[in-house]
Simulated assay, not measured.
Amino acid sequence: MVENRPFGNFIAYLTLALGVFIVAFPVYVAFVASTYDSATISNGNMSLIPGDQAPVNYYRTLFEGTARTSGQSVGGMMVNSFIMAMGIALGKILISILSAFAVVYFNFPFRKTAFWIIFITLMLPVEVRIYPTYKIVADLGMLDTYTGLILPLIASATGTLLFRQFFMTIPDELLEASKIDGAGAFRFFKDTLVPLSVTTIAALFVIQFIYGWNQYLWPLLITTKSSMQTIVIGIKQMLTTQDVLTEWQIAMTTAVLAMLPPVLVVIFMQRLFVKGLVETEK
């Protein structure tokens, strides 16, 4: 039984409120900056109360673009980032769940060795293998394409490990019952494993969507056309070394817009995400 300690609860809520303030205050300042004009921000006259330039700034950012982004609107960048993030998340889930299914339910030579080779790739992120990966993508003619943005990043040792650990908790009786019903391997996978893995899939989707949305180095290398730029690259291009040349209201508007899709994904999938990570049987 958990004891009711008012002072302890007060400290806990105070700590939580302080943490939320530390995280949320810079976001609020960015939102406020997105509602002022450039002169007000550059002169340091911006207050903590939103201004009246929000409609102009958000319309210009979403649909018109700036000179520093070669006229590419942030709306187009968000579409590119969304396609890339969705492709990476769905691709990682598909490959991870199939590889985990093979490792757990099929007997073949060097099965454990294959799993450990997959697991060791955690020590080889894209930054480590950036040159050979770029060389292969360039030779295959996938520069400035969605395929080039997505395909090299869809393998996931983390996802394979997550699904493997979950599959190992599923009773063998389910597999035996499927065999008695005449179900083959694919039907057992489709009708039994996938429905049971919904929460795990949701948890992995949230993690990998945010991972794909925040990618910077890989899109920077393989995209040369402004029409293929992602929103993270767009934010970087808007920031110059000289403050007088930076349109801070547009940069802050872009930053606010860039936060919306990951936040919405977390909000709408929060219950499944938490359940997929903390269920005791996992």
Rank of each mutant, 00 (worst) to 15 (best):
A203P: 09
A185F: 01
P195V: 05
R187I: 00
V206S: 12
Q215Y: 12
A185S: 07
L217H: 12
A203Q: 13
V198L: 09
V194F: 08
S197W: 00
S197T: 11
A183V: 00
D191L: 03
V194M: 07
K190T: 02
W213Q: 02
Y216G: 08
V194P: 04
L204N: 05
V198E: 13
R187D: 00
W213K: 09
I222M: 14
F188I: 07
Q215G: 10
I180Y: 10
D181P: 06
I210Y: 13
R187S: 01
S197E: 10
R187V: 00
P219Y: 14
R187K: 02
T224I: 13
I207V: 10
L196H: 02
T192A: 13
W213F: 04
L221Y: 15
G212R: 04
L217K: 10
A203F: 01
G212A: 00
I201E: 07
N214I: 00
A183H: 04
L193W: 05
V198R: 15
A185G: 08
G212E: 00
F189M: 02
T199K: 10
K190C: 01
S178P: 03
L204Q: 10
T224F: 15
S226T: 14
W213D: 10
L204Y: 03
L221T: 15
G182K: 09
T199V: 06
V206D: 09
A203S: 14
F188D: 12
K179M: 11
V198A: 14
G184N: 01
Y216V: 11
L193S: 08
Y211I: 02
T199W: 11
Q215V: 08
F186M: 09
Q208F: 13
D191F: 03
I210R: 15
Q208G: 05
L204I: 03
A203M: 03
V194G: 07
G212S: 05
K190R: 07
R187E: 00
G184H: 03
A185P: 05
A185H: 02
Q215K: 14
Q215H: 10
W213A: 06
T192E: 15
G182T: 09
A202R: 03
Y216W: 14
V198S: 12
A177F: 05
A183T: 01
P219R: 10
T199E: 10
F209S: 11
A177Y: 13
P195H: 09
F186Q: 05
T224H: 15
Y216F: 15
S178I: 01
D181V: 07
Y216C: 10
T192N: 15
I210Q: 15
S178T: 05
V198K: 13
